[in-house]
Design a binder for these strands. Sequence first.
DNA 1: TAGTCGACCAAAATACAATATTAGTCAAAA
DNA 2: TTTTGACTAATATTGTATTTTGGTCGACTA
Lengths: 205, 205
Amino acid sequence: MVKQDDIREIIINVARNIFTKFGFRKTTMEEIAQAARKGKSSIYHYFHSKEAIFIAVVDKETSTLHLALTEAINTASNPEDKLRAYIHTRMEAINNLANLYSALRDEYLDHYNFIEKIRYSFDNKEITMIKEILVDGVNKGDFIIDDLEMTAFGLITALKGLEYPIFVKKEYVDFEKKFEGLLNILFYGIVKKKKFILRPTKKRI
Amino acid sequence: MVKQDDIREIIINVARNIFTKFGFRKTTMEEIAQAARKGKSSIYHYFHSKEAIFIAVVDKETSTLHLALTEAINTASNPEDKLRAYIHTRMEAINNLANLYSALRDEYLDHYNFIEKIRYSFDNKEITMIKEILVDGVNKGDFIIDDLEMTAFGLITALKGLEYPIFVKKEYVDFEKKFEGLLNILFYGIVKKKKFILRPTKKRI
DNA sequence: TAGTCGACCAAAATACAATATTAGTCAAAA
DNA sequence: TTTTGACTAATATTGTATTTTGGTCGACTA
């Protein structure tokens, strides 16, 4: 059926707007129904709960982001540029999604553990994508990476850390600049290379 | 007077314990007073408010940390090891202070803006210390850093990002390993150096 | 004089009940 | 198949009585 999916789509879209405005808790099914020009009960014909709608909204949003990221990656020609593109696109998107995201942050206190799950699955997708880029870079001989898992984890962590100032302060102005600098560190490090000295390989404990 | 400072010290110590257990809001002056074996009014002879006590506690804690960090830095012989020592000590300390810190986190919602100020001043101290290490490294010719401000900022951000998993999950187990890996990235980057290709030098802004 | 404290107060937190919303169900209608 | 009004149990909100708590003050030491 086309109709069915259309209406689902409508509900998801109107719900998205209301969720971003008021957050999960303060958004009522009545509001969603009215915005979708439906009776409240009708909504339950398409989604079995408010949670389900919220998840659908986030799913759509993340898959859109996923698409944008994939395209950004594919457009770039080498692993280094891919990583640059990924990070830029990601931060751009996060900046736009700030409202919806803050809706998450504000209420993850109220043990909405399904929100935890959402974040978790998103994190996993992200770690997968980054790992792909890194592996690609290693295979092509562009990167040298000891522990892939750890590097990906570290990258995500740093990126997440950078989200915070975006939310709180309006510091996004010169963020482009900062990213550029951070990326250079990531790629080249800060230690001056000396002749005849190879990078030391450490034993792990 | 020695006595006066002694009692201040006692109050700070007992308060620290109670704050770490119950957080700022749930800790009462009565409790602090009892723990210090004083009448509630007496406490006000040494601190003019609950906030003042809390600040004193945090001040002591951070200056202890500052000391530990300084020692760690001084013990290390070269800038690279200094940075390693700094980060290890810092994360170790954060891990121990997790309770007191979470007392901050939990209640920074309730617009205790003085808590914001505490964090802010702590962040500033930290950025200063890190910059010192970096400058030292640059002067000694060990590091090459384009934008010092940005690098320090990026480092702090990444470290802060790493705090989160420490608080939430008990993932500290293999954190040592992860740090080691991240530090290697920081120092050496992930891009494989090619012969005859020098690192591009960027213009300072 | 420096330190201690009981009595006191205003403001804030808490407890509780009355009231109102809201998520979700269901049977009937379109 | 889709829509909806009527209904309900659970949750949220609101208003209010009660208690707790941060902080002050003046008197009392040592």
